[in-house]
Every structure is written in C-alpha cells, then in structure tokens.
C-alpha cells in the first residue's frame, strides 16, 4: 500500500503503543526494584521479589490451582467443544442455524452475572464441591473460544477427504482421528492455548466460586493488593506476562497471530 499517512496519525500511533506498552514496562521495572515499596524507575536491581513469591504459600498454592484449573477446564471444554464444532461444520444442513449462537452465550451473558448465578444455583441446589464448580465454570466460559477457533479450522477442511476414507471402509471414529484431527491440529492447539490463558486470567467467574481454602491466582492477587503494596505483586505479574509471551509464541507458530485480527 502506498497511500501516504498523515504525520499526525503516525505520532498518534506511536503514542498509542507507548500507552499500551508503558504500563507493562513499569510493572517489570518495579518488580526488579530493591525497595520494599513499588517504584519506577527501579532503585537498585534485585531478583529478591521473585524469590519472595515462593515464600508466600498463598501464591504458590493458588498458582498450582490456577494452572490445574486452566488445563482441566480447557481440556473438558475441548472434549465437549470439538464434537460440537465438528457437528456444526460437518452437518450444517441437519442442525438448526441458531445452535451456533448457543455456544456463544457464555460470552454474551455478562460473566459476572454468570458467576453469581452459578454460585447461587450451586449453593442452593446442585451441592457440587467448590473445586468441581470452578472446573465447570471455567470450562463454560472458554467453550466459545474452543468451539469458534476449532470451528474456524474445520470450516476450511475439505470433508470429502473424510468421506473418501469412510467410503473405502474406514470406521467413522478412526477416520476422525486419522484424517480430520491431523488436519485441524493448528486450530486445536491455538484454541487450547487461547482458552488456557482466558481461564488463567479469569476473575469474574472465580470471584464467586472461590472461598476459604480454594482460590485462584488472580483472586489471590486482588486480595493481596488490598493489604500489601510491595513489589511481590509486580513480580507475580511479570511471571504472568511470561506465560502470555509463551502463549503468543504458540499461537504464532500454529495459526499465526494475524489470525486474531480476523
């Protein structure tokens, strides 16, 4: 493209990206500061605050919980979401058109309303243990991601290849695992990783479903911030940014990050 861009717009764009990245640089800087309070630019450099994370059992415990929850919730949502995405893409005529929207409901309904409603129902009716409730809640909120990302992969898959395998006598299940699955691998990996980071960062569902004993890392961070304001929070934040970088690397290698602009 050779259209000239107005210099004012260029300046504005530079400012926007400074605005987007500046606060994250501030967090990284204050995590390294050799002071007992949060400050930027850092005064002296230390990794003490990173070591301190592992001294606080509330952080190590909730980190474990958050990680297992993100893996568990995403896996559950994949096991349920992949067949649904497959059905929507493969049997477009047989299923009613609105069904695709049903799986978007977890984004459409405000998450905080969903969290509250789940908590209320579970507390009064289902009698589910809290860790199981968290797992189901997380599987639910990431379902739209798994169905949509895997669905995007399936929509560009040529189902006549699968039909060829089936008509040559391959059982349907085997055809799915040996023909369809390898072809949508990129979508599955990207969907998994995006769902994983969504679950890992979730606040609105977890805030209602955590209690004394079971908590997740973002909820623990919120609680910690209300009492202490030391660089430990900044160093936990830096660790979480590290996870984000890893997630981006995986998405870039599978579907490419430009996938997110579509």
């Amino acid at each position: 493209m050779k259209t000239r861009i107005h210099p004012v717009l260029i300046v504005l764009t530079v400012l926007t990206f400074l605005f987007l990245l500046g606060p994250l640089v501030v967090i990284i800087g204050s995590a390294l500061s050799d002071t007992t309070y949060l400050t930027f630019p850092p005064q002296g450099l230390t990794l003490h605050w990173f070591a301190n994370i592992f001294e606080i059992s509330a952080f190590t415990r909730t980190m474990g919980t958050s990680f297992m929850l993100a893996v568990g919730g995403t896996t559950l949502s994949m096991l349920i979401g992949i067949p649904a995405a497959y059905a929507l893409a493969r049997y477009r005529i047989e299923l009613p058109a609105f069904l695709g929207n049903v799986f978007v409901l977890p984004i459409l309904i405000p998450e905080i309303v969903l969290g509250f409603s789940l908590m209320k129902s579970l507390a009064s009716g289902f009698g589910l243990p809290i860790s199981l409730a968290l797992l189901v809640g997380h599987a639910l909120i990431v379902l739209p991601y798994t169905v949509r990302v895997v669905g995007a992969s399936l929509n560009s898959f040529d189902f006549s290849i699968e039909e060829a395998a089936v008509s040559l006598g391959c059982p349907r299940i085997k055809a799915f695992f040996t023909v369809v699955l390898p072809n949508i691998r990129a979508g599955i990996i990207a969907g998994f990783i995006l769902a994983f980071i969504t679950s890992l960062n979730d606040v609105s569902i977890s805030i209602f479903l955590t209690g004394p004993g079971v908590s997740t890392l973002p909820i623990q961070l919120l609680a910690h911030m209300e009492q202490f304001f030391d660089p430990t929070i900044a160093s936990v934040s830096v660790l979480l940014m590290g996870v984000t970088v890893a997630v981006m690397a995986v998405v870039e290698r599978t579907l490419g990050l430009t996938f997110l602009t579509k």
């Binding site: 764009t13 990206f17 987007l20 990245l21 606060p23 994250l24 501030v26 967090i27 204050s30 949060l38 930027f40 980071i197 890992l200 960062n201 606040v203 973002p218 961070l221 919120l222 911030m225 929070i233 900044a234 934040s237 979480l240 940014m241 984000t244 970088v245 997630v247 981006m248 870039e252 990050l257 430009t258 997110l260 602009t261």
Partner: peptide, 24 residues
C-alpha cells in the same frame, strides 16, 4: 506484524495485571 504483536501482548495479559499497572 510487530505492531500486531504489541497489541496482542497487553490483550492476552490478565485484567488484574493490567489494572494493577495503573494502580502503580
């Protein structure tokens, strides 16, 4: 691509971390 990466990075960073930055 670089600019898209620079926009995706904060997007995928959690809301608690991003709000905390403004607290600081």
């Amino acid at each position: 691509s670089l600019l898209i990466i620079a926009a995706v990075f904060p997007l995928l960073t959690g809301v608690v971390v991003r709000s905390f930055a403004w607290l600081v």
